[in-house]
Design a protein around this nucleic acid. Structure first.
Lengths: 295, 295
DNA sequence: CCTTGCGCTTTCATATTCGAAAACAAAAAG
DNA sequence: CTTTTTGTTTTCGAATATGAAAGCGCAAGG
């Protein structure tokens, strides 16, 4: 029987994400189709690949045997996509940049100047916290807070992003505690949801304050919304807080643990002109912006 | 853009075979579909992969860059298929055996006894001279006249197949030259077409006879047909000639250069019970048959 | 010059595959 | 116990991919 290589995409995603719906979302297909792909593969392999549970799919031992091969397939597909990027004509094509919330925002604010330099190039800013992989070619360039210790990736360190505590001007004016150290207990705070408690800025706050933040967000940019709504204080990047009107900074700029920043590019793409130019632009733009706002 | 991994199958075949029609035949799809797969890939990669010539497709330099990756993909798919064979339940599934013309014939003659031993297993005898590859998993087991020097393949040497010169009984009776050395020039011969002049038995004949064979065949089994038709003499395996009624042997059995025989199995499949049993059966059956006919 | 053979491409009717929504099942929350 | 949530499966109309056949272009052979 002649099976469809493309179905391995689905197999891999279902195995990795533990269910049809997640896999379907990731692949941009419907859960119904994902399910059909799996049953088709199972028929053609003559093997049951997953156990069906009410909360999702779990690999059988047989399925587990196939998984590494599916990963190999997917790794080859990723190499092929990098080759594709590498072969695209000079200064044209698509460059995909993965960054966290704040950095996505900053990049998108500034992207116009890059588009002027490279008018033929399309840019895609992928706003996903930890789920992008250069090895899988989810993106061409990634901005991360952690230095990866493995993988064929070239690394460029960027100065870490200074953060400070901000509040809406009128909130600060009506809460004298905001200006001194009592603010950690006596003011309301806008922070991260428990699910994101491992983020450096969440750790920073929990080290100083017994209570969880009164307003808890899942997305960094929602914190800014909360701040603008006058809900309390929050730790945000200076480059955001300084340019946002109506906010008042109530601490010195500081570099907190774990807020180091690295820019990652896959080796295969290092010498590709468009990628190289984009990398240089990001570094320059970022550094310039840091210098300007921490004046 | 999200491209279809399965289309790489088509890409690889078209690249290897130099055109749509051959690739389509190999893949069991229509040439129209093969062409559509290629243009779809080209659109999605934003690159022209092939130059179109009136006699087929030729890779562009860009296409050539992608080819090794397509081969990797295909190699992984082959590994996966071997895994599939390896995981199939004990003594059931499909075993595919690649062999030349004569051996296919012999195997098929005897296969019944193997089917009795392994009733749940289906066997596929692939009659293709040189175009099967164990690495690509075109077959599980291959019988070859050459010992491969690379690849993750385990090898088992079999005694080489004795050949002899045969003619139809009445042809030999009416041509006294058939019985002595003049037969090479004074008798008509049935042999291989020029395209197959590299085959050991073609070389054997051309070393002894200036003229090309009067009747030239593309398939070994056609030689037998010619012999039965009384068209002349031919060199064929003893195990075929001896059991074919109406043929008379006019030479001693001999082992000619290049007629050594090896049985090849991919390492991944060596320990799979069905494969192992089939290998043992082939070896035993073959050896028994050789002993019986060269008595 | 015309014919033939070969291979690609287009057309069109058919098959297959797909997504949206409904149905369904099980667990968690109220 | 009922409701809500989450995730799979089924249904059915729509979108997509496919094969057969016709069309086309080119080169080789008569």
């Amino acid at each position: 029987m002649n099976w469809n290589w493309d179905h391995l995409k689905t197999f891999e995603s279902v195995a990795d994400l533990g269910g049809l719906s997640g896999a379907a979302r990731k692949l941009g297909i419907s859960a119904a189709t994902a399910g059909r792909h799996i049953t088709t593969l199972e028929e053609q392999f003559g093997q049951v690949l997953f156990d069906r549970f009410p909360d999702g799919y779990a690999l059988t031992s047989v399925g587990l045997e196939f998984l590494p091969l599916a990963h190999d397939m997917s790794a080859t597909a990723a190499r092929l996509e990098r080759k594709k990027t590498a072969l695209q004509g000079a200064d044209q094509g698509v460059v995909r940049i993965a960054a966290g919330n704040w950095l996505s925002r900053i990049l998108l604010d500034q992207l116009e100047s890059l588009r002027e330099t490279l008018p033929q190039v399309e840019f895609e800013v992928i706003n996903a916290y930890g789920f992008t992989s250069l090895a899988r070619h989810d993106a061409d360039i990634a901005l991360r807070n952690q230095r990866p210790d493995r993988g064929r990736v070239v690394i460029r360190r960027l100065p870490s992003m200074p953060l400070a505590v901000y509040g809406r001007a009128d909130y600060v004016a009506s809460n004298p505690a905001a200006l001194n150290d009592c603010r950690f207990e006596d003011c309301a705070w806008v922070g991260y949801d428990e699910a994101l408690s491992a983020l450096p800025s969440a750790l920073w706050l929990s080290a100083r304050r017994k209570k969880a933040p009164e307003v808890r967000c899942v997305q960094a940019t929602n914190i800014l919304d909360g701040l603008r709504g006058g809900l309390g204080l929050a730790l945000i990047p200076c480059c955001i807080g300084e340019v946002e009107s109506g906010l008042k900074r109530v601490s010195e700029p500081m570099k907190i643990d774990g807020s180091d920043l690295w820019m990652l590019v896959h080796e295969d793409l290092r010498r590709v002109p468009v990628v190289r130019k984009t990398v240089d632009w990001i570094a320059a733009t970022y550094i310039r912006m840091m210098e300007r706002t921490v004046s």
